[in-house]
C-alpha cells in the first residue's frame, strides 16, 4: 500500500478547491488562483506536480458515460492466489477496464468496465472470461443513491 504523499497546506487547499466546479471562463486557472491567493503560474505548476506524482489521478471533465450512450459496470472475479498476478495482468490489459482493486474476500478482484455501448459490456465480459479462464460476476447498478468522490485533502 502506498504511503500518503508529502503535501503542504497549499497543495491541500488547491486539491479541495479543484474538486468543486472548475470555472467555465477564459482563464479558469487564474480565477482559481485568485480565490486561493495564488498566481496562475503557481496553480498550474502545483497541478502539474500533483498529477505527475499521482496525488491526483485525473483533472478534467468527469463524464457520466451512461448519459452519453455508454455503459459502466462493476464486476468481480474469484481468483486463486497463485494465479492472481497473471489474471490481474490479463484483466488490466483490456482498455475497457477503467480501474481494478484487489480486495480481501473470496471475490478478490473488483474492477469497473466502461464501454461505448451497453452491448460492449457483455462482449468484454465474455472476452475476459475467455482470456483468464475464470467467470466474471457483473454487478450493474440498479439505482444510484449518491456518488461524489469529494474527499477533503
Amino acid at each position: 500500500m502506498r504511503k500518503a504523499a508529502a503535501l503542504d497546506e497549499t497543495d491541500r487547499r488547491l486539491i479541495n478547491a479543484l474538486q468543486g466546479d472548475f470555472p467555465l471562463v477564459p482563464e479558469p486557472y487564474r480565477q482559481v488562483g485568485e480565490v486561493l491567493g495564488l498566481s496562475e503560474d503557481e496553480v498550474l505548476r502545483r497541478l502539474d506536480s500533483l498529477l505527475e506524482h499521482r496525488v491526483l489521478t485525473r483533472f478534467g471533465p468527469m463524464f457520466q458515460i451512461e448519459r452519453a450512450g455508454g455503459a459502466f459496470v462493476l464486476a468481480a472475479m474469484r481468483v486463486p492466489e497463485d494465479e492472481f498476478d497473471r489474471v490481474a495482468g490479463q484483466v488490466n490489459a483490456f482498455p475497457e477496464v477503467a480501474h481494478n482493486y484487489r480486495r480481501e474476500h473470496s471475490l478478490n478482484m473488483w474492477f469497473v468496465l466502461a464501454t461505448a455501448t451497453p452491448q460492449g459490456i457483455a462482449e468484454t465480459i465474455v472476452a475476459i472470461e475467455a482470456a483468464t479462464g475464470y467467470p466474471v460476476f457483473a454487478f450493474p447498478k440498479e439505482r444510484e443513491y449518491f456518488v461524489e468522490m469529494k474527499l477533503r485533502a
Binding site: R2, A4, F22, L24, H53, L56, F63, Q64, R67
Partner: peptide
Amino acid sequence: LQRMLDSGVIRRIGAVPNHYAIGYTANGM
C-alpha cells in the same frame, strides 16, 4: 461543456484525488 454539465453527460469538471495519496489509506466497500 455547459450543456453537457446541464444534461448530466459531465458530472463535474475537476480533480480526482488518489485517496491513498491524500491520507485515506483505508477503503472499505
